[in-house]
Design a protein around this nucleic acid. Structure first.
Length: 754
DNA sequence: GGGGGCTATGGGGGG
DNA sequence: CATAGCCCCC
């Protein structure tokens, strides 16, 4: 029955095997890209379980939802359904889960609200306004990041107020009052029963550190084995939480950290490479395993990665290597404009699919900023290449979804002033800014929530009647949530809110899509109600209330994962590509000011982080790596000109193939004139399967009317005519859209068939 | 006091 | 290009 099999150990190389089987005491795995890190992690967990560890005693922490999901899936494949007993997930989601049970011990309600970045910024703006500070100087984003990094370094508002270094920095930037804002912000969140993303860590720390009712030992006993993925991305606070969980008298200190300093790309949110050094000091008995053999990429790609990273001065010495063949050289696409870049990349994707028999899902386009996706989306659509965009504005960040969720938040936690402000006058019911500010002021002065104010204080605002309407919507909804299941309750609230009525009345295409989104959120809630799979810990699993549903929604940043197996090209930021691999990778927008980002140019350490980011990007590729840049692009509404990225120069020429396509010396405006044929292809174009080795382009002089030719993209065709500009009209009978194509001979790859 | 339209400004990455 | 803030009219 429970036959224990250790056969998976045969699939590992020696270093990997040692990293998997050394289960006692602290272990550090330094894992280069493609070195089988995830395999080591999953097999290590499988090995723990095979060695008699109960799955519920394992805590496996990751940074992104995507990494967590992938880890869980892979563990399940190895050990079966008991995998769902493992505490595997992101720091934020697992700590939120614990705090949902324990928060009352540290003065928070267990059904605390989670503030996302927008909520946080809005709270800060409010404080800046009431303090009569300049909102340009105290931009909410800037203030938020100061507060966030204070929290990440365990600096309380009190400590901040006397920390000369921080104060001096703020004075230098003409923001001497940040410590006051920090203090007020924390108090406001506490009063609203809300935690921001940093609080999920900070309050977890507080819980373990202050140790009410000896709660710490409960979790120390529960988590006998701790694993941390992407350790180079942890911040000080996360490190301290780990230590509280692992360090106690006679602790076996079973902690395994996995990471790669060369892939540290999150210092902007407080991650610190120093944690790796600190770990070696705090756990001197640590056993270190270095995984340097790369199983992912061919040699040209590995070489390029090694070359690029040598330009960084701060790094743990290691060199990745591969036994694979040289493979294809790196391709470079040089475009005149961002739009041409989009076209050439799409063009190149079609060519690769045909020449190398790649599926769409083997291909990913990686960019530095999410805003770059638009041009690629447009062009991929034009070529009828199915694609999927990760990141950017997720489903839960859409306006209509946030509005509806704000209603639900209000119904569940009426102290949630951020939700209150969002919906008090949405849909429009005649309660303007003046009234809202009056309510906010009274709330502030009396230490009440805004909801309490409108329920207890007679306002002289003439919006009184409308406020009454709002109160009854929320009250009636409140009366329902305990009687109905999450789905019925949500449907009731949505109806009451009037959002749907408003959208229906509007009738625009946009409104219709908003209504669809709301309906699909309701579907999601229905699914949640009917879902019968068990969660990690049974004490959490029977709650089907609406409150339970929305509790972790702020943490759900990924887009719907329903069709993860669909055959689509993937578009995403380099950050979210970490940990993934594709047969073919396009890294686009390689220009100074963009990649590396203009934000990083002044600071050498930030340039190094950009370089690590580039390192991450190129090491995602298994066989094909294409780098592209544009001489000019539209940014912030007008045309900008950027130089090619310094990172391109850091790759030795011997690893790079010649240019693809036109080299335009002129940095002119507008569309390049000649770009081949960009009419849309029908989807599911039959792959032509032309072996590139059998293909050799013929000289232009051979392309004459009547000749039979082979084209890499369009297959076999017959030349009808060639005009004096050397443009041939060719009949491709297999082409799905229009069989007749005009081909510019100067750029076309045509082979004359005898 | 509230709502709609126009102008000015800022624009990174993720939980 | 998107959003916030401002002005002006209802």
């Amino acid at each position: 029955m429970n036959k224990v099999s250790f056969s998976y150990l045969d699939e590992l190389n020696e270093v990997q095997r040692n990293a998997v089987t050394t289960i006692d005491g602290p272990v550090m795995v330094i894992a280069g890209p493609g070195s089988g890190k995830t395999r080591v992690l999953t097999y290590r967990i499988a090995h723990l379980i095979n060695s008699g560890v109960h799955p519920g005693q394992i805590l496996a922490l990751t940074f992104t939802n995507k990494a967590a999901r992938e880890m869980k899936e892979r563990i399940e494949r190895v050990i079966g359904s008991s995998a769902n007993k493992i505490w595997a997930g992101t720091f934020h989601s697992l700590f939120a889960r614990i705090l949902r049970v324990e928060a009352h011990r540290i003065g928070y309600p267990n059904d605390f609200t989670i503030y996302d970045t927008d909520d946080t910024k809005s709270v800060i703006s409010e404080i800046v306004k009431t303090m009569n500070l300049d909102k340009k100087v105290y931009a909410p984003g800037v203030v938020r990041s100061r507060i966030s990094s204070a929290k990440s370094n365990l600096i309380t508002p009190k400590a901040y107020a006397v920390n000369e270094e921080l104060l001096a920095y703020d004075r230098m930037n003409m923001r001497p009052h940040i410590h006051v804002l920090y203090d007020k912000y924390v108090k406001k969140c506490e009063k609203a029963g809300a935690m921001d993303f940093d609080d999920l860590l900070l309050q977890m720390f507080k819980l373990l550190y202050q140790n009410p009712d000896n709660v710490r030992s409960k979790y120390q006993n529960q988590f006998k084995y701790i694993l941390v993925d992407e350790f180079q991305d942890t911040n000080y606070l996360q490190y301290e939480i780990m230590k509280l969980l692992i360090e106690y008298p006679d602790s076996p200190r079973n902690i395994c950290i996995v990471g790669d300093d060369a892939q540290s790309i999150y210092s902007f949110r407080g991650a610190s490479i120093e944690n790796i050094l600190m770990f070696e000091t705090d756990f001197p008995e640590v056993q270190v395993f270095k995984l340097e053999q790369n199983y992912r990429s061919t040699n040209f790609i590995v070489n390029a990665a090694n070359e690029v990273i040598t330009y960084n001065s701060n790094q743990i010495k290691k060199k990745i290597w591969t036994q694979k063949e040289d493979g294809k050289k790196i391709k470079l696409i040089k475009a005149a404009t961002d739009n041409e870049e989009g076209k050439r990349v799409s063009d190149s994707i079609i060519e690769q699919k045909n020449r190398f028999n790649l599926a769409n899902k083997d291909i990913a386009i990686l960019y530095r900023t999410n805003a770059q996706s638009r041009v690629f989306e447009e062009n991929l659509r034009r070529f009828n290449i199915p694609y999927r965009v990760y990141g950017g504005l997720s489903f839960y960040q859409r306006k209509e979804i946030k509005d509806f969720l704000a209603y639900i938040r209000m119904v569940i936690n009426d102290k949630d002033d951020e939700a209150f402000k969002r919906i008090i006058n949405f849909p429009k019911r005649g309660i303007g800014n003046t009234s809202v500010e009056e309510i906010a002021k009274i709330a502030e002065d009396n230490g009440m929530s805004m909801w309490e104010v409108i329920n207890s204080i007679e306002l002289n605002s003439r919006a009184k009647k409308s406020i009454g309407e709002f109160v009854s919507i929320i009250r009636e909804s409140k009366a329902k949530i305990d009687k109905l299941d999450a789905y019925e309750a949500a449907k009731f609230i949505l109806n009451k809110s009037g959002i749907m009525t408003m959208l229906k009345a509007d009738g625009s295409i946009e409104s219709r899509s908003r209504m669809e989104n709301l309906t699909s959120l309701l579907d999601g809630i229905q699914e949640f109600v009917q879902d019968d799979t068990l969660e990690i810990n049974e004490e959490f699993s029977n709650d089907k209330s609406l409150s339970k549903f929305i509790q972790n929604i702020s943490l759900m940043t990924d887009q719907d994962e329903n069709n993860a197996d669909a055959d689509t090209v993937t578009l995403m930021s380099v950050h979210s590509a970490k940990g993934l691999e594709y047969r073919s990778i396009f890294v686009v927008g390689l220009e100074e000011n963009l990649f590396p980002s203009y934000m990083s140019l002044a600071d050498p350490s930030q340039i190094e982080e950009e370089r690590r980011l580039f390192y991450v990007a190129i090491t995602r590729a298994e066989e094909h790596l294409t780098l592209s840049y544009a001489n000019s692009r539209y940014q912030y509404g007008d045309m900008r000109f950027n130089d090619p990225s310094r990172f391109l120069e850091e790759i030795k020429d011997e690893n790079i193939d010649g240019l693809i396509g036109i080299t335009r010396e002129s940095k002119g405006f507008g569309e390049p004139k000649i770009l081949g044929n960009f009419k849309p292809l029908k989807p599911k174009t039959a792959s032509l399967n032309i072996n590139p080795d059998d293909f050799s382009a013929s000289p232009i002089s051979k392309i004459i009317p009547g000749a039979r030719v082979l084209h890499l993209k369009f297959g076999e065709g017959q030349v009808l005519s060639v005009d004096d500009r050397q443009i041939a009209t060719i009949l491709f009978s297999d082409a799905v859209d229009s069989p007749e194509k005009r081909i510019v001979l100067k750029f076309a790859k045509l082979q004359v068939l005898e």
